[in-house]
Amino acid sequence: MRLEAIDAPSTPTTLLYPVGAVLVTFVVASGLVMMAGASPLAVFVLVARGAAGSQFALLETLTRATPLIFTGLAVAVAFRARLWNIGAEAQLYAGAVVTVVLGTGALPLPAPLLLPLIAVSAMLAGALLLLGPALLKTRFGVDEVVTTLLLNFVMILFVSMLLEGVLKDPTGLGWPQSQRVIAEARLPRIIEGKRLHWGFIVAIVSAFIIWVVMKKTALGTEMRAVGHNAEAARFAGIPVGTVIVKTALLSGGLAALAGFSEVSGLKGNLTLDLSPGFGYSGIVVAMLALLNPVGVVFSALFVAAIFVGADAMSRSAQVPSYIADVMVATALLTMVVAVMLTRYRIRRR
């Protein structure tokens, strides 16, 4: 068996393989569902219904997709410039910490002033958190996969320290949680009484802005140039180190917005389980979207739908909701293979 590069993949194959990838995902999941003793068709219907079968389900999916869009964008931007930011989780928490610090009454401002101020400060915190690994990479060649990954653990322990210490809610009955942010620091709900909040709109707008940046600006072109071929970019006079640092600031800021939006829009306070791995899922979201900012919105919706749907399904069918993890992971693997197949053909002998 060997691989031969295809110079110009035809349009049908570029569409067909991703569809095939989704089908394979369902086949694999079906096998597991049958092992759990349930009917695959019934389970998938339940998943679909749980994800989009009612207004509640649909809004829940959109709510869950919101942080995934931010972290997905953060990863997509960074990966495009070959900055392997595995630390979106830490940057998310950095944004959340800033939101809590500024949003619990420290700044007595009206909401139209306070919310943008907190959002920008959160972005700064996330950006600064990724600045260190980016500078280590450009100055000393330190591998950012290692530094950003390890910062996740540093950050979660730091947050734990804060929640047991200075940020601990005195009225929290001893639970490690922060005070709730004041009303002026809350992102309003889109529909009164439902959980979906304005963070979702901000996420969609962010995706569009990032798309414009990548497609229409000199910076975006420089980022892609550095990502595709740093050597050629440097030769062409593009300041590779500066571009990587700018990318890091943008990526870290986006991930931090996820933390801001979760605290300010949804939870209202900071806890250690604010993010069930949104930073890591952001990698999956970005890869499924092939690093396309608009694609990130759709892949985030897909991943959120599977998680939300599987949660609902596991309550009625006797299938553990871990099936969602398996499906997302399988979708990622098959998508990677599908992308490879659009660029290479396999020859036997």
Binding site: H228, A232, A233
Partner: peptide, 8 residues
């Protein structure tokens, strides 16, 4: 590898 970026 230096003069041009193939994927652009």
């Amino acid at each position: 590898t230096v003069g041009a970026i193939g994927d652009m």
